[in-house]
Design a protein around this nucleic acid. Structure first.
Length: 273
DNA sequence: CACGTCACCTGCGTGC
DNA sequence: TGCACGCAGGTGACGT
């Protein structure tokens, strides 16, 4: 489930539930989920740490602890679940943090990840792992001007570029397809061929679709469910064979950079350069 | 630098 | 019902 709006939804949901609590202990059920440090160090270092703050950067969820930052990346199938009290780990739990409030109330934070692609970092230097990310698309540094200038510098195909987290941070397959459709741009366009107007439209589309995703609490598809409903408002993603909501042409599915890609052949015309 | 390919994993829907 | 297959919201390591 995890693109920017989904991770943001999770961050907002768990923040009031876990800030101020103490991580009493950690139960690491799949060591492969741990990027850094070693399992032994992780368990020792995380124990006793208070959760001071929760934030998000790109698709990373960040728990700011007393002495470390705990970074969680959900990749394709990860999720975060909170449980009251103490219960046995569930089938796809990869890490469970046992929490306690000052007055002794117990709860758990579970990192659930069926496909085991997700990763966890416990570090004093988060910039080591977050430093190469591009701008946050909903923050000030991401302006139409910035987008145009930086598209000009890239020869790459538009969709793979938008998926590149070092270019812009937070877009994934769904929100990229949706953005391109709103901006009436073809995923196979060359980045440096966009006009200032097209760049401005793309900028606006990216921001509006991410805001819509957040407003709808993200998209919940397949067996991963978080209560969001953006999946009911997709314009093109997963809608191949259905009519375009704008012009009613039949939406087509193609492959771009090994990713399923959805376009309206009438709205998104590939200009040959 | 840009691009393609593969690897990492499990689960679900489809079609035979 | 069983089974093979294709596909999935992401990224990183290669090779050309």
């Amino acid at each position: 489930m995890p693109e920017l709006p989904e991770v943001e939804t999770i961050a907002r949901a768990i923040k009031p539930e876990i800030v101020g609590k103490i991580i009493v202990s950690a139960n690491l059920l799949w060591a492969g989920s741990l990027a850094v440090p070693s399992a032994k160090k992780f368990i020792a270092q995380v124990a006793g740490q208070k959760i001071n703050r929760v934030s998000r950067r790109a698709k990373y969820l960040i728990l700011h602890l007393q002495d470390y930052d705990l970074l969680l990346h959900l990749r394709m199938s990860g999720d975060i679940l909170l449980r009251e009290g103490r219960s046995a780990p569930e089938k796809h739990d990869r890490l469970v943090l046992n929490l306690r409030t000052k007055n002794g109330r117990l709860s758990q934070l579970a990192f659930r990840d069926p496909r085991k692609f997700g990763r966890i970092w416990l570090t004093e230097n988060p910039q080591t792992f977050l430093g190469k990310l591009g701008p946050e698309p909903l923050e000030k540094a991401f302006t139409p001007q910035w987008l145009f200038e930086n598209l000009q510098k890239k020869k790459r195909l538009l969709k793979p570029l938008l998926l590149d987290q070092t270019f812009i941070a937070g877009l994934g397959n769904i929100y990229t397809d949706e953005s391109l459709h709103i901006a009436k741009l073809h995923p196979l366009s060359h980045a440096n061929a966009l006009s200032p107007d097209q760049a401005r439209n793309l900028h606006k589309a990216i921001q509006s679709v991410l805001r819509e995703g957040i407003r709808r609490n993200g998209a919940s598809i397949d067996w991963v469910y978080r209560g969001g409903d953006f999946q009911n408002h997709f314009r093109v993603y997963g809608r191949n064979g259905s009519p375009c909501p704008v012009c009613h042409a039949v939406i087509q599915k193609m492959t771009v950079g090994q990713r399923g890609t959805h376009v309206c052949p009438a709205c998104q015309v590939l200009e040959r350069k």
